[in-house]
């Protein structure tokens, strides 16, 4: 959120060197012949009450990052500290308790709700499971949640198939809010919605953040949406973060050639600005066999010999706002 809050600099989520590899198995006895390096050494921190946007194209590992932090997928390496506790080190009983504090909102409003359950059960099931409310108390809480996300409590005895995509997304949000979480991973939460509904949901997410002082990890491929909702943005390419800075700085001064290409590829709703864009050649390489050196070098217009051998580490650029980039050439580009 681009609002002036007193930045207490308290980090709610701290991700260090996160790696998630999926083994590739072949043959009769499922021998491991290689790994898909979906997430390959990702580190970031999110301040309490702020939003970090995570952008990248499909297959760059952004969804895997979100699910690994929530321990829905097992990490290969790295450490995630949430509110002082080590997420991967917790025994399963305490992990269940921690799950109350971190939630997930999904992309597809159709597959993310159990079609056999009524709205009241979808939203309220976790309250029962964590013994937070039962009976009348639960009904009251569910009604409150539904009203808060802009639905009527009359809807609580209906099934998901009786709602439109936008309404379903609201139900998904109500479910995530039921346990009063501190942190929500929004995994492409508005990508599947119609344009006029998308803005409704974005506003709702922002209002909820203000009211409940939530912290978001907002994962999306749409740079315009991410830029609108986030305080900070991390750009991912092939399992690695290539650029990280505040969202305004990213728009004003994108430094990594991939970020620049991504920005210029966004179609602008303005017919007078049919810009000369940097159209990237080629496609995203397979994460099972990433290129050597900088993963972006085969598509990069600036690449030179060094880029194919070694990748630059994430480095602070300039001395103003926090702006870290992993590129050898970004300084030259700038001048």
């Amino acid at each position: 959120m681009k609002r002036n809050m007193e930045s207490t600099k308290k980090y709610l989520v701290d991700v260090k060197g996160l790696k998630t590899y999926f083994p590739i198995k072949r043959g009769l006895f499922s021998r491991v012949v290689g790994h898909v390096k979906a997430v390959d050494g990702v580190s970031f921190k999110i301040q309490a009450g702020k939003t970090l946007g995570l952008v990248g194209e499909s297959g760059c590992g952004k969804t895997t990052v979100g699910r690994t932090i929530l321990r829905l997928i097992n990490a290969t390496d790295g450490k995630v500290t949430f509110d002082g506790s080590d997420v991967f080190g917790l025994p399963s009983k305490e992990m269940r308790k921690l799950r109350c504090d971190m939630q997930l909102i999904f992309q597809d409003p159709y597959s993310s709700l159990n079609p056999r359950m009524t709205v009241a059960n979808i939203v309220g099931e976790s309250l029962t499971a964590h013994k937070m409310a039962t009976g009348r108390q639960r009904r009251k809480k569910v009604a409150e949640l539904l009203e808060r996300v802009g639905l009527s409590p009359h809807h609580s005895s209906r099934y998901p198939h009786e709602f439109s995509g936008g309404q379903r997304q609201r139900i998904g949000i109500a479910r995530a809010l039921a346990l009063d979480p501190k942190f929500i991973v929004c995994d492409e939460a508005v990508s599947a919605l119609d344009v006029s509904i998308q803005s409704q949901i974005i506003n709702l997410l922002q209002d909820l953040q203000d009211e409940m002082s939530l912290t978001y990890l907002f994962i999306a491929h749409d740079l315009a949406v991410v830029e609108h909702i986030s305080d900070y943005v991390a750009v991912m390419y092939l399992g690695k973060i290539v650029e990280y800075t505040s969202s305004r700085e990213l728009y004003k001064n994108p430094l990594h050639p991939y970020t620049r290409a991504l920005m210029s590829a966004i179609p602008m709703p303005d017919p007078h600005r049919r810009q000369q864009r940097i159209v990237l050649g080629g496609e995203v390489p397979s994460p099972s066999n990433p290129p050597s050196g900088c993963p972006f070098h085969p598509r990069c217009p600036m690449a030179e010999q060094r880029c194919s051998v070694e990748m630059q580490e994430l480095k602070q650029q300039g001395d103003g706002v926090e702006h870290i980039v992993a590129c050898w050439k970004c300084k030259e580009w700038n001048t």
Partner: peptide, 16 residues
């Protein structure tokens, strides 16, 4: 499926 992942994220027991 996402709704099963959601149930896991909510910390629901295996039985549920």
């Amino acid at each position: 499926q996402d709704f099963v992942q959601a149930a896991r994220a909510l910390g629901l027991p295996l039985r549920s």
